[in-house]
């Protein structure tokens, strides 16, 4: 009689343990799924934020007063003064922290496309790159290159690369 009872209670114990085991497996699967969905949504949000930041930095670079053309204190949009540019490059290089606050990680280069010459002039305006960025965006902005000495406008391309960790 006692042995029979023992066997029955053992079976019941085994049943309870099995049910609990399956229950925890289901909870585990649910948790893994939830974390994956959450992580994916987080990545999407982060990617969107990086894109917005990239646009903001590109606009900041396009309208840097250190580079913009101006006449009688009136600035011209979409134009870089080549004389200012030469001076600005040395100012940017000697004030890295200030420009990092504005432009963060990335690189800004300027290339003259027209008029063409044997060696297409290229200027490295800003560079502070990281080795393995989480995201990197490259934006090309066509921009006028004003040469105040000759009073001519060339066609240039500002390439703005923004990176995020």
């Amino acid at each position: 009689m006692n042995k029979k009872l023992e066997k029955k209670s053992q079976i019941q114990m085994f049943e309870t343990i099995s049910v609990l085991f399956i229950f925890f497996i289901l909870i585990g699967i649910g948790a893994i799924f939830y974390v994956r969905v959450y992580k994916s949504n987080l990545d999407i949000t982060k990617y969107g934020y990086s894109q917005s930041k990239s646009v903001a930095i590109a606009q900041r670079a396009m309208f840097l007063p250190e580079l913009q053309c101006s006449k009688n204190k009136i600035t011209t949009d979409n134009c870089i003064d080549l004389l200012k540019l030469e001076a600005a490059i040395s100012v940017i290089n000697s004030n890295e922290i200030h420009y990092y606050d504005l432009l963060e990680f990335g690189e800004i280069n300027l290339t003259q496309v027209y008029p063409s010459s044997a060696s297409a002039p290229k200027w490295a305006v800003y560079s502070r790159k990281i080795e393995r960025p989480a995201s990197s965006f490259l934006t090309f902005v066509p921009i006028s290159l004003y040469d105040p000495a000759a009073d001519t406008y060339g066609y240039g391309v500002l390439s703005i690369e923004t990176q995020s960790k």
Binding site: Q51, P142, Y155
Partner: peptide
């Protein structure tokens, strides 16, 4: 979201810059 801005900016800046060249 960036692609829309970049294309619009590119089209507008390209013509503007070209005409002023």
């Amino acid at each position: 979201t960036r692609a829309g801005f970049v294309s619009a900016e590119l089209a507008s800046n390209t013509i503007n810059t070209f005409l002023e060249t």
